[in-house]
Design a protein around this nucleic acid. Structure first.
Lengths: 242, 242
DNA sequence: CCTGCCATGCGAACACTGTACGCATTGAGG
DNA sequence: CCTCAATGCGTACAGTGTTCGCATGGCAGG
């Protein structure tokens, strides 16, 4: 370490890469970036820290990745590859859509930084995994009989992205506080109550929400997501011919 | 300018604030931040540049705003104040909801940086304008007869946020390219065509989309948004008692 | 009118960030 | 063996958000 910061031009300081450490590569960089993003959040990822984890110099990464934004784009496409979709020829399109929506939500919650990037870059990336995701989605909405599957997909995806984004941001806030979700809610309640003071309908809604006997916040979120998804799918079902 | 970088302790360098320049205040800072965000995008906003626009020193802002994140939070609440909602006692809840959704979308597209922040922070802020927005929304969903207005609101808001976010991100990308939307689409088409190659359903959907006689991309986006919103409202209508 | 206080403004500094540049080292191919 | 292209990386630059301590001014109390 001391020799590293003071590079004496000597034979003994000769570089000698660990052979077991797999060589630097685009795939390895993206993989490590994702685990780092998952573990420490989006604002903790810097090129220097990432390089350090890979036992590499900071600027070495730029041999494999043009810019940090490009790295993020690659990371997004990579996690889209994780999303498992039901087979395209499922007989029950509603069940298939529900499963696909749930799979997206699960990935979004597992990688909360995804929402941050989607908020900035949208779904405009053209990576192969994203394309294949769109392809399979289109496939079984088309086979369900929707004349314009793209319309249906845009609708359900918008709902899922909107809800998942809100959830992911919430979970990020909770995680940053270093508390469990229930603890954080308990600590937030006075502030929320004060904020809703003077707003009659909101205090009503708030009272209803806190009267919920369900103690598990995650279950509450699950139910909320399922409710809205059912609403969207009901609306789509009305548009199926016949 | 030269004197500023070399502060000679002289009587003549005595400070002398312009009296016409309104004093630094939290409201003025937030307002200027918003115009700057609108004009140059979220990544162009720095505390130093913002301070320079206000003829102030960079660190002076911290007397009125604890941190940059807090400033963003204030900016978000401020633009939520712009959203105009229909009166709470509208007889036609669908028309009212459509108007409210359109108003949100309009603000989101006018301030594309909003989506970036929502992606990171969600809707968890407790600012007064955000509260009042929620209150009024709850009010007329309740008066429409929904037994659990919060559920309905969450659903439609999720859809609106998801769609608007995607649109805003798209518009940001277009703006950064310095082209009109149509030009950008034209330039993007080869890449998109190549990306969809090998995905049968996607190429189909792509062909359908490009066969659209509507030449105005904004109108296409409007129609897409309206379609999905109708789907969601149809689904909600099924849940109205009776 | 004088005095002391306190809110406000701000220059300098710190620890970081993403990234351009140019030099060293390496392994492969002629 | 020599050459060349690919790869790693130290240094440097222009910025970032934010802290600290000092200067300044207007206002309250005597």
């Amino acid at each position: 370490m001391a020799a590293k910061t003071n590079p004496i031009p000597s034979v003994w300081a000769r570089r000698q890469r660990e052979p077991d450490q797999p060589a630097l590569s685009r795939a390895a960089i993206v993989r490590e970036a994702i685990t780092m993003l998952d573990a420490e959040g989006i604002e903790a990822l810097s090129m220097r820290k990432l390089a350090a984890r890979l036992n590499a110099g900071a600027t070495s990464l730029y041999r494999h990745v043009a810019t940090k934004d490009e790295l993020m784009e690659l990371a997004v496409d990579e996690v889209f590859g994780e999303i498992t979709l039901p087979p395209a020829d499922s007989p029950d399109w509603r069940a298939a859509a529900t499963e696909a929506a749930g799979a997206f939500r699960a990935t979004a919650l597992r990688h909360p930084w995804l929402s941050s990037i989607l908020g900035q870059a949208g779904l405009a990336y053209l990576g192969p995994n994203l394309m294949s995701y769109g392809e399979r989605l289109t496939a079984f909405f088309a086979s369900a009989g929707f004349p314009e599957p793209a319309r249906a997909i845009d609708t359900v995806i918008s709902y899922v992205v909107g809800m998942s984004t809100t959830e992911a941001a919430w979970l990020t806030t909770v995680a940053r506080a270093g508390e469990s979700e229930a603890e954080f809610i308990a600590r937030l309640m006075p502030a929320a109550q004060e904020a809703t003071a003077g707003f009659d309908h909101l205090t009503d809604a708030y009272a209803v929400a806190t009267a919920d006997p369900e103690p598990d916040p995650a279950a509450v979120r699950d139910a909320k997501f399922a409710y809205g998804l059912d609403v969207v799918l009901d609306g789509l079902a009305l548009r199926l011919p016949r």
